[in-house]
Design a protein around this nucleic acid. Sequence first.
DNA 1: GATCAGATGTTCT
DNA 2: GAACATCTGATCG
Length: 210
Amino acid sequence: MGDRARRTPLSALRDLLAGPVLPAARGLLGCELSAGGVTVRITEVEAYAGTAGDPASHAHRARTPRNAVMFGPAGHLYVYFTYGMHWCANVVTGIEGEASAVLLRAGSVVAGSDVAAERRRSTVARDLARGPARLCQALGIDGTAYGVDLLAPSSPVRLSPPTAPVPESQVAAGPRVGVTGAHDREWRFWIADDPTVSAYRRHVPRKRPQ
DNA sequence: GATCAGATGTTCT
DNA sequence: GAACATCTGATCG
């Protein structure tokens, strides 16, 4: 017996993140993310396999200044700016150099909802962190949080293990949202009956070239 | 409730 | 220059 029972939940989480990306993504459901005076319980995630043959990953082609942190150790935060106005947050997973990551797509605010509502200019609790860009806005995450260690106590953005684990029967899986290719992979995971999970939308090209 | 178009800037070809 | 891991507001049912 022993070793496993003595490990703290935090070190168990660190081990989980350092392993394969799919179990890591599932294990992130129910974890709590705290930043800027707001705490969110994660209800929806997507896995991206980095250099391991995933054409939808930002790290698939090559290492660039933007995705550099994904090539580092697990448990760090990958933040990127997209569509000219939105930030999105990922947790780096796997071994160094693999560049896999888990996109945090949605959560429900469990503390600091007044602060989150002020940032979001919305009073609908369900919508405060429903969607990857909304989640970042509610938590006040932007480029200044790029690369921070989510498991370090002094970090501005912190990740905590679930207060209650999510039962296997509550975890649903399906195709990823918004990605251009690789629709066949069911690498999106969410908590089945949670109202804060974003609705699935197939990727649509946004403009016709005349 | 569903669907559509527009905003806006960084990254890569 | 084109694409993009999105959101919001308007319009239609």
